[in-house]
Amino acid sequence: MHPVSLHQVGKTYRLGAVDVPALSDITLDIHQGAFTVLSGPSGSGKTTLLNLIGCIDMPDRGKITVAGRQVQSMPDDALSDFRARHIGFIFQNFNLIPVLSARENVEYPLVLAGVAAPERRKRVEALMDAVGLSDRQRNLPAQLSGGQRQRVAIARALATAPPLVLADEPTANLDSHTGAEIIALMRRMQREQDVSFVFSSHDPQVHAAADEIIFIRDGRITGIEGGRA
């Protein structure tokens, strides 16, 4: 079973009287345990597609199946709970909660998922260690570098061991060296935790690491490349 399947999905934005088709007729399967990259020029619809897969936006047409569930008709609370259990997010701007320390940021999704405190502590400990931030656990996000913040964000996205992690241009705000480290970390974590990673990027070094590359232009899939898989 594919973690994500899209069938003839379309999304159109209305700007005044003008219809802006952001996505048209997307039919797509994401492979289990793969490192999938969405590639395309600016405005091609990468973010829109990731938002639909992440169940934080709804399509105008078509069907989306995530982890075996049809999501486009789910009520808001059910969808929230679904996201909490099945999807991890990594953002371009890191989006850590500023009042929470690094470890608390990682712990937060576990609190949302209702995991008991001792279990949470173990899990956070392991993740902080895995992203190499054992010694910065008590720091607030403002006291961390961009790369460190994105490491915390990766640990946070993986905290509940979701089957699917989405990342929208996770390296766009980092220098190329740090970006490469983050890619390597994500790749390693993806293998270790056996999750499906989907993320968007213009970055060629990301393409090199991918199992599969989906090319997208003007809201349509223009090609899928097997990458190294």
Binding site: G54, I56, S80, F89, F91, I97, P109
Partner: peptide, 12 residues
């Protein structure tokens, strides 16, 4: 931050 919390699964 609100958007982030909601994406992570916090209900309305």
């Amino acid at each position: 931050e609100i958007g982030t919390l909601r994406a992570m699964g916090l209900r309305r």
